[in-house]
C-alpha cells in the first residue's frame, strides 16, 4: 500500500513499495498556478538536495520552481507531462513529475501526512 506525504510547498510524495519516491504537485498548487503550459523536469541521474529547485512549472503568466522534497537521486522523469502539461491541471494527484531514490530511505517521516496537510490548507483558507 503506497503511502502519500506532502510538503509545505504543496508537493505530494508517494513512497512506493520499491522505496522510490514519486513527486507531483497538489490540487491546491495547480489551482494556484492556473493554466500550466510548460514543465521542465530534472534529468535521471541528477542528485538533488532537499529544498533544491529541480523542476519548473510555467503558467501563462509566471514561472514557478518545484523543489526536491527530500535529498536523493532522480531515477525517472515523466516525459508525457512535457508533451501535455495540461494534465497537471486536470489531475494533479496523478500527474507525476519525477521519481527519485532517497538518500535516507526513512526521510519521508519528515514530511506531512494527509491530516497535517489538510490542516495546512485549512489554515490558508
Amino acid at each position: 500500500m503506497p503511502q502519500i506525504y506532502f510538503t509545505a510547498d504543496h508537493e505530494w510524495v508517494e513512497i512506493g513499495e520499491d522505496g522510490l519516491a514519486t513527486v507531483g504537485i497538489t490540487d491546491h498548487a495547480q489551482n494556484a498556478l492556473g493554466d500550466i503550459v510548460f514543465v521542465e523536469l530534472p534529468e535521471p541521474g541528477r542528485s538533488v538536495a532537499k529544498g533544491e529547485a529541480c523542476a519548473v512549472v510555467e503558467s501563462v503568466k509566471a514561472a514557478s520552481d518545484l523543489y526536491a522534497p527530500l535529498t536523493g537521486t532522480i531515477t525517472e522523469q515523466n516525459s508525457a507531462l512535457t508533451e501535455d502539461p495540461g494534465q497537471i491541471n486536470q489531475s494533479a494527484a496523478t500527474a507525476w513529475f519525477f521519481r527519485m531514490r532517497l538518500a535516507d530511505a526513512g526521510a519521508f517521516a519528515e514530511l506531512m501526512d494527509q491530516a497535517a496537510y489538510d490542516a495546512l490548507l485549512a489554515s490558508l483558507a
Partner: peptide
C-alpha cells in the same frame, strides 16, 4: 475570482482561468 494587488487596488487576476 482570484484576486491580486495591482497598483494599490485589489483586482481580479482570473476567474475560470486565463486561457479560457
Amino acid at each position: 475570482a482570484r484576486m491580486v494587488e495591482f497598483a494599490g487596488y485589489e483586482m481580479p487576476l482570473q476567474y475560470a482561468g486565463i486561457i479560457a
